[in-house]
């Protein structure tokens, strides 16, 4: 068994409208990891997942599941994959438990009421099992979507924006559930535009924008490599412009001139902070408050997207 459970090779998608949703994406997913695919709306996250799951036809490239082409071996591939789509689409007139059992059998698995009970209990849905789906709340419906995807015991699970529009409590529950699944060996690929989510859960992060995978990195590495700190200085008196004596630190001035922002590498030998402060005192610039802030994945992300936009 190779390390990659899923290999994506040169995957392209051009929609009939002419939109290039994916521009030759290559990606390897490691067995048992949680991979977060991060990107703004319309970046191609859902298209990528939909192609792997057989819902969208690619314009080129291929997907390998344990080295096997996902179209030629579609039965095996699809039996191993579970998909939780972004939209809450379900047969609203069906009772909860029937829709979950339906999903299991649809994927060719033997009916197994005990396993269905386990899944429903895990997702706190057991008490609602006889409820007609349309009577469930949005959060409950989200859980039902997950139950349906898990009903056939897949070992690769796709979660497309799992926590979009979900309250904090359910989000925590969902993260815990994803971790438990991973402990049982399930490989999880989730898309999100909540950085917090990727930061909290993922082992690795991929950033996608305009159909291109800009970066794939271990989350901790990414945080370390790009993790910059920012110093904010609240000035006593607003400045009209940055004095030339401070130019070597390349600080930024807020529009109203009241805040000076200086970005620095927290891991570097010299942060440049003492010298900057000295230079400011020499220039007669006083400040009333200061704080430093570790850049989050969100800042990194915004920076990357911004960078790729500038390059384009």
């Amino acid at each position: 068994m190779s390390e990659s459970i899923l290999s994506i090779r040169g995957l392209r998608k051009q929609y009939a409208s002419g939109t290039d949703a994916l521009k030759s994406v290559d990606l390897d997913i490691k067995r048992g990891e949680i991979f977060a695919l991060l990107g703004p709306n319309g970046a191609g996250k859902t298209t990528l997942i939909s192609i792997i799951c057989g819902i969208v036809t690619p314009s080129g490239g291929e997907v390998l599941i344990d080295g096997k082409n996902w179209q030629r071996h579609f039965r095996e591939a699809r039996t191993r994959i579970g998909l939780v789509p972004q939209e809450l689409t379900m047969d609203v007139f069906e009772p909860l438990i029937s829709t979950v059992s339906f999903s299991r059998e649809l994927f060719g698995r033997r009916p197994d009421p005990k396993r269905i009970e386990e899944i429903l209990r895990e997702l706190s849905l057991w008490d609602k099992r006889k409820t007609i789906l349309k009577e469930l709340s949005g959060g409950m419906k989200r859980r039902v979507m997950i139950a349906k995807a898990l009903a056939h015991d897949p070992d690769i699970l796709f979660l497309d924006e799992p926590t979009a529009g979900v309250d904090v409590e359910l989000r925590r529950d969902m993260w815990n559930m994803v971790r438990r699944l991973r402990e049982h060996g399930t490989t999880i690929i989730l898309t999100t535009h909540y950085i917090e989510e990727a930061e909290e859960m993922a082992d690795r992060v991929g950033v996608i924008n305009k159909g291109e995978l800009i970066l794939v990195e271990e989350k901790t590495e990414l945080m370390k490599k790009l993790g910059r700190k920012v110093l904010h200085l609240q000035l006593a008196e607003p400045l009209a412009a940055i004095p030339p004596t401070l130019a070597e630190w390349n600080p930024r001035l807020s529009e109203d001139g009241s805040t000076l922002t200086y970005e620095f590498d927290a891991k570097a030998e010299r942060t440049g902070i003492p010298s900057l402060l000295t230079a400011m005192r020499d220039a007669g610039i006083a400040f009333k408050d200061l704080d430093t802030h570790q850049s989050s994945l969100e800042d990194i992300f915004v920076g990357l997207i911004h960078h790729s936009k500038a390059a384009a």
């Binding site: 799951c53 057989g54 039965r75 039996t79 789509p85």
Partner: peptide
Amino acid sequence: FTGTIYEILSAPL
């Protein structure tokens, strides 16, 4: 119409 076709399309059928 409802979008549940995703499940049929992604099933090993």
